[in-house]
Simulated assay, not measured.
Amino acid sequence: MYRISEFSQITGLSKETLRYYAEVKLLEPAYIEPSNNYRYYDVGSYFFAKKVKDKSTIYFNRLRRSTNSLHRVRSRSDDSMERRYHDCSSYR
């Protein structure tokens, strides 16, 4: 069993992220010590955490790509609108 700090180092997930995942019941500790509320994770938790991290990385990479695409579209749209404005202003 690994304490949260050890598990955080092993998985690359921050302690805050692990606490949040426990709160939303995505990845709960295998055991919580009643006397001090220390969270303990087991090997099964490791494999699940790895899967969650891999999926979130894929998701955020896709999100980042789509956001970059939207920024390019917006930039092109802004350029196009500016050109149209300048073209129209010559008729004044």
Rank of each mutant, 00 (worst) to 15 (best):
33 E>T: 09
1 M>L: 10
53 K>Q: 10
55 K>F: 10
56 S>L: 12
56 S>C: 04
51 K>D: 10
83 R>T: 14
66 S>L: 09
18 L>F: 13
71 H>S: 04
5 S>E: 08
71 H>N: 05
7 F>R: 06
42 D>W: 08
37 N>H: 15
69 S>G: 02
10 I>C: 04
76 R>H: 10
19 R>K: 14
91 Y>F: 05
26 L>V: 08
81 M>Y: 15
55 K>Q: 10
42 D>A: 12
38 Y>M: 06
24 V>G: 00
24 V>N: 03
32 I>Y: 07
76 R>Q: 13
34 P>R: 14
32 I>S: 00
59 Y>C: 02
86 H>K: 08
84 R>N: 13
64 R>Q: 09
3 R>K: 13
11 T>A: 11
9 Q>F: 12
18 L>Y: 13
12 G>E: 13
39 R>C: 10
37 N>D: 13
18 L>W: 09
21 Y>E: 01
67 T>C: 01
27 L>V: 02
2 Y>M: 05
7 F>C: 05
82 E>L: 14
12 G>F: 11
15 K>C: 12
32 I>C: 04
53 K>D: 01
69 S>I: 06
6 E>F: 07
30 A>T: 06
52 V>P: 00
70 L>S: 00
27 L>D: 01
73 V>L: 11
84 R>G: 12
32 I>P: 05
59 Y>R: 03
70 L>M: 02
11 T>D: 12
67 T>F: 08
59 Y>F: 14
74 R>T: 07
55 K>C: 00
45 S>V: 03
48 F>G: 00
23 E>S: 06
5 S>L: 04
41 Y>S: 05
38 Y>S: 01
48 F>H: 15
1 M>I: 03
46 Y>R: 12
